[in-house]
Design a protein around this nucleic acid. Structure first.
Length: 687
DNA sequence: TAAAATGCATGT
DNA sequence: CATGCATTTTAC
C-alpha cells in the first residue's frame, strides 16, 4: 500500500463507516470509577453500574448527585452512588455524560432508606427514589439558601401530661433516644398542638423532626400549630399539590439543614431531615398513608424502618387504633401513650343507638327526613346549643332503594328504616337494623322490584333542611371541604374525612353511614368503620356538656360497642386476636401477585419462596375501574384472564418473601417474559 | 437508541 | 466455511 493510498483511506472513509471512535476523554486522576443507579425500573437492572468519570467532572461528580449516562444506547438519568478507585466490571466503562447538578440530593441515609424500602416491599430502587426525591427545579436550586435557623432555648411542654407515659416519651426524645409510642388521643383533643409540642421538644434537643398526616387539611392544622409554637421559618411544608418549585425549595431547605422540621403528606415520610430525632404519623389507619405507586410502601412502616435506621423516636398517633399498632404493643416493640379511663369517659360524648324493632315513626318531620326518633331528637336538642354534625356516606357509595313502580321509599318491614344496597351486592338490607330484605313487597302498590337511587350528601342536606326549617345547612365533601364551622346552630353535612372542626365542639352528631360495615367484605371493614365514627364523634362536646352522638347501626357489633364505650384499644386488641386466629395480617406477612394468569404462574415458578410460605390461588379476579374497561373495550377481545395469588409467611420471613418475589421478577424481566405482574407486600385490601 | 452478539444467506 | 448483511440482544 502506497503512502497516497493510505492517506486516502484515512481522509475519505467509506460511507457508513465513519470513525465514530469518540475522542479519548481524559479520565479523573482520583477515584475514576463512579457507581451509578440508573433510572430504569426493571428488576434485573436493580443494581449499580460503573462508569468512568471524565476529568472535567471530577469535582462535581460526588456521591448523591444526579447524572446522565448512556445505558443500552439510551440517555438515562441516574444517581451517582459512590466513587471508586477500581472497577469491578471487567469490560470497558462508558464515561458519565453529564453531571446534571452538583447538588448531592441523595444522602447516604436517604439512599439507605430507599434501598431498605425497596427491599422490604419487594420493589426496585428507582421506583422508591421517584417517591423520595422530588423533581429538580433548576431556578430554585440556584437560589442561595437562607440563614440556618437557630435552636430555641425553652423546651415546650404541656398537653402531654394528660397521657400516661406521655411525659416519659418526651423526655426520651429530649435525651436523644429512639422510643416508639402508640398514642391514643383523647376525644376532642387538639392533636395538632400535641404533635407540635413533641416536634418542639425534638428541636430543642437539637434534633430534627417530621410529621406525616393524611391530607392537605391536616397539614394546615399542624402547620398552624407549629407556627403558633415555634414562629415562622422553623419548619416547612411538603405536599404533592404545592408545585415543583415550592416543593423542591422546601425539600432543599431540609436537605441543606437550614430547616429541621417538616409537616407533609405521605411522601414527606422520606423528607431529608438532618439528624432526625422524631418521626410522627397521625391517623395511621387512613388509607391515604398507603402509597398507590409501586412498591406501595405504607407511611407507618416507612417511619418505623427509618426510626430504626436513623435512631429516631417514632410516634404513631390517632383517636382510634389499628391492628398493626396493637401488634406493636402486644409484641412490646412500642409503648402505649393513653389517658386513664376516667379521663377518656369524661371527654367522650354520649353515644346512642336507635332501638331495634321500634314502633313506626310518629313524628312526620322525622319520618320525612328518614331519621329515627332518637336521631331527630338529638339533632333538635343539639341545635338549641350549637352546630350539629351529620356524617353521610360518600356520594355513589351507598344507594337508597325505592319501589320501581310507585317510587315510594323502600322500608324495612321490622323497623321501618330505609333499605339500602351497596353497589355490587345483590341483597338489599335495612340501613338501620341491618336485616336483609330478600323478599320485599311494596306496602303501597304491592310491587316487588326495587330501583336504586343515589342518596348523596346534597340530597341529605336538602331533606334535613326541610325537617329543620330555619336552620342553616352547611356542606363539606368532595367538592368543597370546610376546615371549620362557627359555634352557632347549624346542620353540618359532611362525608367521612371531610368533617369540619367546630370551634366549641359540636352539640351533637348523627352518623348516618352506620351500615357501611355491614356489607363491606373487607378485612378492615370494622376497624375502618370505627375510625370514621370516632374521628367524627371526637369533634363533639363531652357528654358532660351535653354532647350526643347517634350512630345508626345495630347494637352488638364490636365496632358499635367500641364507639358506645369509647374504647378503641379494646377493639384493636379484639381485632388483632381475631386476625391472629385466622392467620391474617398483621399477624402474618402477606403478598399478592396480580396479573395475567400465565405471568402470575410463571413468577411463582421462578420464586424461591421460604419453606414456610403458603400459596393460595391463583384465582381469577375481576379487574374493576377504568383501566379494566379500557382493556376490555380495546377491541381484540381475547385479553389474558387476570388472576391473583396470595402468599402468606410468618412475619419474620417477610423480607425473605419480598426478596424471593423481587428476584423472580428479575428473572422474568431478564427473559422478557410477557405480562406485567403487580407484586404487593402487605397490601391494604385483602379480601 | 448505540454497540455487540447472533442469525442467516450467499459465494467460494 | 468464511464473508457480508440483517436482526436481536445487551445494558458498565
Amino acid at each position: 500500500m502506497t503512502e497516497a493510498e493510505d492517506e486516502q483511506l484515512a481522509l475519505v472513509p467509506a460511507p457508513g463507516r465513519r470513525p465514530r471512535q469518540s475522542s479519548p476523554v481524559e479520565i479523573a486522576a482520583v477515584d475514576p470509577v463512579a457507581e451509578v443507579a440508573v433510572d430504569v425500573p426493571l428488576p434485573h437492572l436493580d443494581r449499580p453500574f460503573e462508569y468512568a468519570v471524565p476529568a472535567a467532572m471530577a469535582d462535581d461528580a460526588q456521591p448523591g448527585v444526579r447524572v446522565r449516562v448512556r445505558f443500552a444506547g439510551q440517555d438515562v438519568e441516574g444517581y451517582l452512588l459512590a466513587r471508586r478507585a477500581e472497577a469491578s466490571h471487567p469490560g470497558r466503562l462508558a464515561p458519565l455524560r453529564t453531571v446534571v447538578s452538583a447538588e448531592p440530593v441523595l444522602s447516604p441515609e436517604l439512599l439507605g432508606l430507599c434501598r431498605a424500602v425497596a427491599d422490604r416491599w419487594g420493589g426496585v430502587l428507582p421506583d422508591v427514589l421517584r417517591l423520595a426525591v422530588p423533581r429538580r427545579h433548576a431556578t430554585t436550586e440556584r437560589r442561595d439558601p437562607p440563614e440556618p435557623a437557630t435552636t430555641p432555648e425553652r423546651p415546650p411542654s404541656g398537653r402531654w401530661d394528660a397521657y400516661r407515659a406521655g411525659p416519659a416519651f418526651l423526655d426520651h426524645v429530649a435525651a436523644g433516644g429512639a422510643p416508639r409510642a402508640v398514642w391514643t388521643a383523647l376525644p376532642g383533643e387538639d392533636w395538632a398542638a400535641v404533635v407540635a409540642t413533641a416536634v418542639g421538644t425534638a428541636l430543642s434537643a437539637g434534633r430534627g423532626a417530621l410529621v406525616v398526616v393524611p391530607d392537605h387539611r391536616d397539614v394546615e392544622r399542624v402547620d398552624a400549630a407549629l407556627t403558633a409554637l415555634l414562629g415562622t421559618g422553623r419548619h416547612v411544608r411538603l405536599t404533592a399539590d404545592q408545585g415543583a418549585s415550592a416543593r423542591y425549595r422546601a425539600w432543599l431547605l431540609l436537605r441543606r439543614g437550614c430547616v429541621r422540621a417538616v409537616v407533609g403528606t405521605r411522601a414527606a415520610a422520606f423528607a431529608p431531615v438532618a439528624d432526625l430525632g422524631l418521626a410522627v404519623v397521625w391517623d395511621d389507619g387512613d388509607d391515604l398513608h398507603a402509597e398507590p405507586h409501586a412498591p406501595y410502601p405504607h407511611v407507618r412502616e416507612v417511619l418505623a424502618l427509618r426510626g430504626e435506621r436513623e435512631g429516631a423516636a417514632v410516634l404513631v398517633g390517632a383517636t382510634t387504633r389499628t391492628a398493626e399498632t396493637q401488634a406493636w404493643l402486644t409484641a412490646g416493640t412500642a409503648r402505649s401513650v393513653e389517658a386513664p379511663r376516667e379521663q377518656v369517659r369524661a371527654a367522650a360524648p354520649r353515644v346512642l343507638l336507635p332501638g331495634e324493632g321500634h314502633e313506626p315513626e310518629r313524628d312526620p318531620a322525622a319520618s320525612s327526613a328518614r331519621l329515627p326518633t332518637v336521631a331527630w331528637r338529638a339533632a333538635q336538642q343539639g341545635l338549641a346549643h350549637g352546630p350539629v354534625l351529620v356524617q353521610v356516606p360518600r356520594r355513589g357509595y351507598r344507594l337508597s332503594l325505592r319501589c320501581d313502580r310507585c317510587r315510594a321509599a323502600a322500608r324495612c318491614g321490622t323497623c321501618a328504616g330505609p333499605l339500602g344496597q351497596t353497589s355490587g351486592h345483590a341483597v338489599p338490607a335495612c340501613t338501620w337494623c341491618g336485616r336483609p330484605a330478600a323478599d320485599w313487597r311494596c306496602p303501597q302498590c304491592a310491587g316487588t322490584r326495587l330501583r336504586a337511587a343515589v342518596l348523596g350528601q346534597r340530597r341529605t342536606a336538602e331533606e334535613l333542611g326541610r325537617a329543620f326549617p330555619g336552620v342553616p345547612v352547611r356542606r363539606s365533601g368532595a367538592g368543597e371541604v370546610l376546615a371549620s364551622v362557627p359555634d352557632e346552630p347549624a346542620l353540618v353535612v359532611a362525608t367521612p374525612g371531610a368533617e369540619p372542626v367546630a370551634d366549641g365542639g359540636y352539640a351533637a352528631a348523627l352518623l348516618l353511614d352506620g351500615w357501611a360495615l355491614l356489607d363491606r367484605a373487607d378485612l378492615r371493614a370494622g376497624e375502618e368503620a370505627l375510625r370514621r365514627w370516632v374521628n367524627a364523634a371526637a369533634l363533639v362536646r363531652p357528654g358532660t356538656r351535653g354532647g350526643t352522638v347517634v350512630l345508626l347501626a345495630p347494637a352488638g357489633l364490636p365496632p358499635v360497642e367500641a364507639l358506645v364505650r369509647w374504647d378503641p384499644g379494646w377493639h384493636a386488641a379484639r381485632e388483632l386476636e381475631e386476625r391472629t386466629s385466622l392467620s391474617f395480617p398483621p399477624a402474618v406477612a402477606l403478598a399478592t401477585l396480580t396479573g395475567p394468569a400465565e405471568a402470575v404462574t410463571s413468577l411463582l415458578q421462578h420464586a424461591q419462596l421460604p419453606g414456610s410460605a403458603e400459596v393460595l390461588g391463583p384465582v381469577p379476579v375481576e379487574v374493576r375501574g377504568p383501566a379494566a374497561r379500557a382493556a376490555r373495550g380495546g377491541g381484540d377481545g381475547d385479553e389474558p384472564p387476570p388472576a391473583r395469588t396470595l402468599v402468606r409467611v410468618p412475619t419474620p420471613e417477610r423480607t425473605a418473601l419480598a426478596r424471593a418475589l423481587h428476584d423472580a421478577a428479575a428473572v422474568r424481566s431478564a427473559r422478557k417474559e410477557p405480562g406485567a405482574v403487580r407484586v404487593q407486600v402487605d397490601p391494604l385490601d385483602v379480601l
